[in-house]
Design a protein around this nucleic acid. Structure first.
Lengths: 197, 197
DNA sequence: GTCTATACATGGATAGAC
DNA sequence: GTCTATCCATGTATAGAC
């Protein structure tokens, strides 16, 4: 189920968990390729070799950081695909993604925003068509261009809206509500779509 | 680092322009820090040193690539700030930005999406508060959180919506229309019920 | 003016001491 | 398990040949 309260990447803990938390902070601030293993080591007060003890490569760290979110996304997509009504599909995706973003604000920004991260995910076969699956769930079959544009703005806009300093002062519950509100406003197109077919 | 103005008259022509075009393509695809000078040189069929002949540093290339867009953004902000009605201010910003994005689809993605690029801009004093100026123009004075969220989604969503493969098949004029449509839908908020806060 | 050659730093990664 | 020392590739940048 998509409704759990813990962030995907724990902020406390020992060994790997602290490493992942530090890496996430740096990734979110500097980008993946703007973050060196040295920086991660420094943030933890250890040496590069200590980092390599936990993960064999930098790519592994990136994957470890983002894969919880990817798995959750996949679960959301799967859950939505099992719904039969279009309305329920869209709603499941929206609520699931917004929830995921709000629960761990910076993680999703890395996932969606960083081209290096996206390349790494592609190379390792993670989320190949997941992104398209989610878009398809939102726009439905035979979407008109206006819907595609709206969904694109929505999907890429949500991530920054969850992370940027602009919304830092807004509480989780309220942010969640506003995001869903925006999503519904964007997707409620007043075009009957009868014209095309 | 003296403020030596470069040979301001790019008389010999297409050298730099081709370089900037190649750099932009790579930045848009791999990100700034994922792009090496070697890649740029290879794309042009020259050597790294030839690239250094045109620009002294990599940062200079980044600045040269994005500064036309920044200047346009600044002009848009300035024009909007001179309008007296709020409606005209918002409209000027929206139309200006959407226009800029559509005219130049990948450039804006680099500008907004790449953390390395943003760091470079900050370090060189370019667009310090430009981003905040534009947000302020859109949300107006004393914005409620819902408006801030909507504007954040909009501003960060537009760039990917202008560049991503999803919209690649949509013509400029149509894309422009849909983007403006989305923007207006997002910003036309009904006030949240007073009970909540 | 353009490239060759190269300096110099950093980054990723490994072997092995403790 | 964690760190020291180190290797090697790459990246930025420069000096100087042509």
């Amino acid at each position: 189920m998509a409704t759990q309260l813990e962030p995907a990447v724990p902020r406390e803990g020992t060994g790997r968990k602290k490493l992942l938390a530090a890496a996430l902070d740096l990734f979110a601030e500097r980008g993946v390729s703007g973050t060196s293993l040295q920086m991660i080591a420094d943030a933890l007060g250890v040496t590069k070799a200590a980092v390599y003890y936990h993960y064999k490569t930098k790519d592994d760290i990136v994957l470890a950081v983002v894969s919880p979110a990817i798995e959750e996304l996949a679960a959301i997509a799967g859950e939505a695909e099992r719904k039969r009504s279009r309305t329920a599909q869209v709603e499941t995706v929206l609520v699931g993604i917004v929830d995921l973003i709000v629960r761990n604000r910076s993680l999703y920004a890395v996932l969606q925003g960083d081209l290096t991260a996206i390349h790494i995910l592609r190379e390792h076969g993670a989320f190949p068509e997941l992104s398209n699956r989610i878009l398809a769930l939102i726009v439905g079959p035979d979407p008109d261009p206006g819907t595609i544009v709206a969904a694109s703005i929505l999907l890429s806009g949500l991530h920054e809206a969850g992370f940027g300093p602009r919304v830092a002062g807004i509480g989780d519950e309220e942010l969640r509500g506003h995001m869903l509100d925006c999503a519904r406003r964007l997707l409620r197109h007043r075009r009957p779509s009868a014209a095309t077919a």
